[in-house]
Amino acid sequence: MSNFSVAFRDAGDVTVLAICGELDAHTAPELESAIKKCRDEGKAKLVVNGSDLEYISSAGLGVFMAFIEEIRALDGDIKICALKSKIFNVFDLLGFPLIYHIVETEEEAISLFKQGIKPI
């Protein structure tokens, strides 16, 4: 029984992926296929809402890295928002804020797209 799920939500041309539960080596393929699906549908502006993310392992972090180049090549980006402080700490230790926009709220993340702010 997987304790991880991804929900899609469209906000204009931005796609919000609300991820919930524990993202580890077992559940990473779910997020992977979700991002792949967006990429294949041409949706490159992605916001990952991690408000319900309870845990992330290194394999989970790897998913973001696996697609970032392709997504950015499609003139899009992956922006991460609403992380719990404990989860943010994991992103932060690894230096993710140096590469990804990691913001407090979903709205903020969407507005970054709207303002046309370039990826880091």
Partner: peptide
């Protein structure tokens, strides 16, 4: 000791050294 620094493999550019 929490100095700044990216994980190896995250960035292939100069960003790694700069940060």
């Amino acid at each position: 000791l929490r100095s700044g620094g990216l994980g190896i493999g995250l960035d292939r550019s100069e960003l790694f050294s700069e940060t």
